[in-house]
């Protein structure tokens, strides 16, 4: 994976505000990630999907997006993070630390680059944290954001999946195993029947 790099990409896709509006009430305790790709239906329909994840930490709402929604290995992924207070809407602008971990299937999660800091863009209208990452492997990654909460910090995991794992060999393997078992059992039963018939035929 290459390190973070800044770049200019116009954020033409809008964050689907309705999702924020229908999000759980502040007191709702459940741990939900709304990590669905959202489509912006505009003049340029159909748009490339975004992945959007909403999070809630203390008084803050976090909106995390990455583009494209389904990145492939080697493709630069643009990440954006908007943080504002739920009541009053004041924008959060402090530097934040991010760690990137790789979630190997059936192996433990491990960091893939040293943690790095992100800062919001300058200028009054720029309140988003923006950075780019390129992932080389088809895997599940997690961006772990260290965010101040109460007297300490909380780590918030944002899932990022690079490429689609091809499970067809696994499925074909299982089906082939079943077919083999069925064929073997059928053959043994045929043989048993044949033997039985031979025994029954008087010599």
């Amino acid at each position: 994976m290459s390190g973070a790099r800044g770049a200019q990409t116009s954020s033409r896709a809008l964050i689907v505000a309705t999702l924020l509006a229908v999000a759980l009430p502040a007191a709702a305790p459940a741990h939900h990630i709304l990590g669905i790709p959202h489509y912006k239906y505009s003049d340029e329909y159909p748009q490339i999907p975004y992945m959007e994840v909403l999070a809630q930490v203390g008084p803050h709402d976090l909106v995390f997006t990455h583009f494209p929604g389904f990145p492939e290995p080697g493709e630069a992924v643009r990440f954006k993070l908007y943080i504002r207070e739920r009541d009053g809407g004041r924008v959060f602008r402090q530097p934040l630390r991010i760690e990137v971990t790789q979630k190997h299937f059936l192996r433990r999660t491990e960091p893939v680059v040293p943690p790095f800091d992100i800062r919001p863009g300058s200028g009054p209208e720029r309140n988003d944290y923006k950075f780019f990452l390129t992932f080389s492997e088809r895997e599940a990654y997690e961006l772990r954001l260290r965010f101040p909460s109460g007297d300490g910090f909380e780590t918030i995991p944002f899932p990022v999946v690079i490429g689609k794992t091809d499970d067809r060999p696994l499925i074909f393997g299982a089906v082939a195993l079943l077919a083999l078992a069925v064929a073997s059992v059928a053959a043994v039963k045929r043989r048993r029947r044949w033997r039985r018939r031979r025994r029954e035929v008087p010599a």
């Binding site: 305790p29 459940a30 709304l34 994840v53 999070a55 809630q56 909380e154 780590t155 918030i156």
Partner: peptide, 9 residues
Amino acid sequence: MMSHDPVQG
């Protein structure tokens, strides 16, 4: 919505 305060017991 993802809330990272664990649910109070």
